[in-house]
Nucleic acid binder design. Structure first.
Lengths: 193, 193, 193, 193
DNA sequence: TATGAATGAGATTTCATTCAT
DNA sequence: GATGAATGAAATCTCATTCAT
């Protein structure tokens, strides 16, 4: 059973790798099988279809990302520092896990309504996390009492802009870092109590 | 020659329609031909390939969107009012032209670097427009002297978040309007001189 | 349009040929395309699916067979001679069109209910033809007033037995001819008025 | 060894069941394994291949049927009564063992000449049984001295027509019973000494 | 002996693109 | 220029069979 999970994980990892490299319809199941070191048929033992595998990769990629953000928000830190850490972690994650990230933004969110729902669900999850962080800051008097839902949305927006610049515009890492800092500053301006 | 352009326009319109309805690889050239009321072969008289047609639709969709924003920023208005108008127009555009919008963000065959470049180019164009607007406001003393590139980026980010909520989460129009207003307010907080 | 029908006919002929040679699932669409001298895709312009093509072949094969029987029953002949002619034509048809015939008995009648219905329909059509022939003979006083439905069924049964012997047991032609004659005689014994 | 046979029998029974339900290529070895309550691999302990298993089912199904006919021809009965009993048993068997019967006529992978031979062999076996019955009747003076081979063949033909009507046309049982009686009568007409 | 996870050959069908008319 | 019939490459998924346990 442990063995089984291990194989499923290997397939999933291979899928994320490859789906990150090129668009969905340029990925052959066979490519993934090869990279995972299993037979084509084996993939279908663990995933219902190519689309299912893609969706699983999406979910796993987001989870990885989300965990990274959560881990960055060390509980002992004050809210401002947490926010700063989250911004930084966002940037470093998308820089280092370009492939996984490219899946997250999802080359094809439109197809199945299930997938849309999942995507929206992920947005919400990220939003809730940021809202909690903001509420904490407000409670501690670090932030002014803003509408947390709105600000969270704004932050997600900033994150997604950074995404585009890092992944597609191929900006240099340090330029991006500066950019992220400034975005954070702008954000804090609006939050300053 | 006038005739020719008219036909090309009809094909492009049909393409935008249909690419907005479903993901790239679920669209058949034949569908577009049918909707445009021309033969399959005719499309190849005006467009090199399916990908080319998609790219043209993308560009046209963005132009439509961009023109709408530009038109909203009536020159005679003060910067704050312009920004407000642009926010409002963004929202109304994505609500009313869901199809065109879905192309803009949607499904990129993304394989070709040309397309990535075009996408980045559009981001930049939108960014420059917003920067100009911000600089104007700063010059007029309406905004504090922020890093316009950064704030423009932040606004683009907010726009894209609104996009997700409107297109995929299916939020009610009026709820979104309120949300957009609040995003603008948050923005203005950071900009207030 | 004439051209089109010609191509469809060529595909159908090739299909009957090949479906007659080997069982359904050992026939590749590609084989049929090759024999018909068209591309694989072309077949799908004229037939919805492999199964559809098979069903069409079945129908066409039966029609050919049925026409042959009908043609044998020359109107001017007395009933007994007609019956004799039909027996003879049955035998010669299945001997000479072994391939087409093998389709008729149908390697896979069970799959779709449509197909079953079509098969039953063919049985009925053959039955009605024989019944008419019998009724004519009864009216003319050549045959005793038997239950025509029953005797028609019996004749179909005899036909199918001959089928098995010719197609599968590979009996010599003249031996079969004698056999058919005797079957007819036995039949006539029951019919003799 | 007793245990082994029991398992083999269970597999065979399951195979007959399922091959009777749907055409050969819609049957998965796994389905049979499941119905038999054994593992997929186990089937290959007892049968060489899917085709082999099918052939075994065919043979077993025919044997069941053949035994039933033989049992119906109770030795003490006069020939006419025997023939009557055999007709009746044929009908009741195909009505009650539709699945087994469907195998007998059904779907032949037909590729292998072995299978054809087996099929012809079964026809012959049935033929010999009927011939013996006829000869007995002739010897007893119940039947006129017909060519027994021919009449046996005719009877087999009638049996197969009944098959089609019962299995595929879904005729009501009692209507068929009447039909069978009449077929027998017609037969007896030809046999009456 | 029994198992079932793993395999990979294989075939239908789709659809972008071509080109003769 | 306009058309759409013809094409064939290509890829998902199935399933009989194997073999390590």
């Amino acid at each position: 059973m442990q063995e089984i999970s291990e194989k499923k994980a290997r397939i999933l990892a291979a899928a994320m790798d490859i789906f990150g490299e090129r668009p969905y319809d340029q990925v052959k199941i066979e490519d993934i099988a090869e990279r995972a070191g299993v037979g084509k048929g084996t993939i279908y033992e663990y995933f219902v279809s190519k689309e299912d595998l893609f969706a699983a990769g999406l979910e796993a990629g987001f989870n990885e990302y989300f965990m990274a953000l959560v881990a960055a928000a060390v509980p002992s830190l004050p809210a401002t520092a947490k926010l700063q850490a989250v911004f930084g972690r966002h940037l470093s994650f998308i820089s280092q896990h370009a492939a996984a990230t490219r899946i997250i933004i999802g080359e094809r969110p439109a197809s199945r309504s299930e997938m849309r729902e999942a995507m929206v669900g992920r947005y919400m999850r990220l939003g809730r996390f940021l809202e909690e962080l903001l509420q904490e800051g407000i409670a501690a008097g670090d932030f002014r009492p803003v509408d947390t839902a709105v600000v969270a949305q704004a932050i997600i927006g900033m994150f997604s802009t950074l995404l585009v610049f890092v992944l597609f515009a191929g900006q240099a890492a340090d330029a991006m870092e500066k950019q992220a800092e400034k975005l954070l500053d702008f954000c804090l301006l609006g939050l300053a109590s």
